[in-house]
Design a binder for these strands. Structure first.
Length: 156
DNA sequence: GCCAACGTTGGC
DNA sequence: GCCAACGTTGGC
């Protein structure tokens, strides 16, 4: 089983939106590295941390999810009215994929990026490295569990 | 709103 | 295949 972080700008789609929806198609990925991770490594049952990006003081990890459907063609690439249509994608051989996620838990508070950066256990994570622009990142099981622990303990 | 980082595009 | 221009991401 693999562990992941999925980023989303809360102004676009937030943990509260997912709480309302329960299960959601994670669409709009338009990056080849991320697509390949979805295709090759992501499996039903994988655990995922939900990260709010570009959220000011609210930037950080806000909950956990799980993968409930493995990679399949992202329908929004063929929808001219969607956020990210891709006219060059061939319906016979779709370029972009998505997965379905289910909310497991909204955390009682946000584990902020500041807190994550200040913990040496997370120093090796891609998330805290400068210039990382991937919307989906792998994380180790140990790091995942430590984040869960910190956020439930209330203080770190 | 600024700007650094980095992926993508397209001319050659 | 190189690389400059451009667009996007995301922290601050």
């Amino acid at each position: 089983m693999n562990h992941w972080i999925f980023k989303s700008e809360p102004s676009c789609y937030s943990i509260d939106d997912l709480q309302r929806d329960g299960i959601e198609m994670w669409d709009g990925v338009r990056n080849y590295q991320v697509r390949n991770m979805m295709r090759d490594l992501m499996r039903v049952g994988d655990r995922v941390l939900f990260y709010h990006s570009n959220a000011g003081v609210g930037t950080g990890v806000v909950g956990q999810m799980e993968i409930v459907r493995e990679a399949y063609p992202d329908p929004t690439q063929f929808d001219p009215n969607s956020e990210h249509p891709d006219p060059k994608s061939d319906p016979e051989n779709p370029r972009w994929l998505c997965v379905d996620v289910r909310l497991v838990e909204k955390f009682p508070r946000t584990l902020t990026l500041q807190q994550i950066k200040s913990d040496p256990a997370f120093a090796s994570m891609q998330l805290v490295k400068k210039g990382n622009r991937l919307s989906i990142l792998p994380i180790t099981k140990a790091q995942y569990q430590r984040m869960k622990k910190l956020v439930h303990r209330g203080r770190s």
